[in-house]
Design a binder for these strands. Structure first.
Lengths: 190, 190
DNA sequence: CCTACCGATCGGTAGG
DNA sequence: CCTACCGATCGGTAGG
């Protein structure tokens, strides 16, 4: 079927772009780099996408949506705050192990996003951050956590989790998850 | 004196380059961007530097040397491991507050370094990492710390500290230092 | 430190 | 999906 093969070829191009953007950065990657890696002439790339910026938008918004959906699912769950934090760690590890290149690009290259995508992206990120901090503060209010500044706690945790995007090569998911959970929950613990 | 003014103009260009590399990335910054920001014609930049890559090398190696020297000073001190970790947090905050742009470029753009600088840089980083981990493991051996994997502990700490490079705008140094110390030492604590 | 300029490469289009 | 090509911009040099 024509449509199916067109979609998957586009996705293949996007995935290859994610590999290159991760390796060389968005600005450091040319359409010619991408074309030679997918086995096409440079101009043929434009049969599948409208612009180089579209590639970055697809990668970043794809990840952003998955994080947003994942957070929404966890946020409304009737479980302890400690379990919510563990679920969020699990969410980041799911992303790290499923889309190791895309999630790195999402993390490091989003500032090159064109408007109006950039503004949307920042809004999604702020919403994620707000919910994450609310869970943390809920833990503090219940007397289960013990940190003084939710913004600092959030940022330390999120940076630790974004390290896992690099760690994917060297660790098994279960090891990384238990170590990360231990370390983070120990830091939060009362 | 001619030499003095020449040196400081070059340093001004390097500092301006650090601001731009931080804002737009190394590949996303052109010599023309830099020239217009320092108020010169593009070609005049080359009266002060040999190449764009030299700018990145100066920035990254300058920071690397400061971290290396700082670590060496702390490593040989006869103080408790807990105080050594606090001193290392202080070192990162010194860098963050003194060179906020350069240290961000050092952190995010080093992969664009040309050889043989890149290899030197990676060696310095590995040495820093090795000493940091030894201090952490010493704490574990003395029964003062309690984590299971020194590499994971190191990476979480270093990522948390590199967050401070962004946090410089919003926090006072003393607040950031006490919050960061509390959080990290609590996570390491037995 | 400037004017003038170089070849290479960039993202992208026309037309088939 | 290719050939052929566009104008813009890149890092950098010559010469004064």
């Amino acid at each position: 079927m024509k449509t199916v093969s067109t979609i998957s070829k586009k996705q293949f191009i996007i995935n290859t772009a994610a590999d290159l953007f991760k390796e060389k950065g968005y600005s450091g990657t040319s359409i010619r780099d991408l074309a030679s890696k997918v086995g096409l002439e440079p101009s043929s790339i434009y049969s599948h996408i409208k612009s180089k910026e579209e590639l970055l938008s697809e990668i970043c918004l794809g990840c952003a949506r998955q994080f947003t959906d994942g957070m929404e699912g966890i946020y409304v769950l009737k479980i302890s705050v400690r379990k919510k934090i563990k679920a969020l760690i699990g969410l980041h590890l799911d992303m790290a192990f499923t889309y190791p290149a895309s999630v790195t690009v999402f993390n490091d290259e989003w500032r090159h996003l064109p408007e109006p995508v950039l503004s949307d992206f920042i809004l999604m990120r702020k919403d994620y951050e707000k919910k994450f901090k609310r869970i943390l503060m809920e833990g503090n209010n219940e007397g289960k956590f013990n940190f003084s500044n939710p913004e600092i706690a959030f940022n330390i945790i999120i940076k630790s989790l974004s390290w896992s995007y690099e760690a994917v090569k060297k660790y098994k998911r279960e090891d990384l998850e238990s170590e990360l959970s231990d370390f983070i929950l120990n830091a939060l613990n009362k």
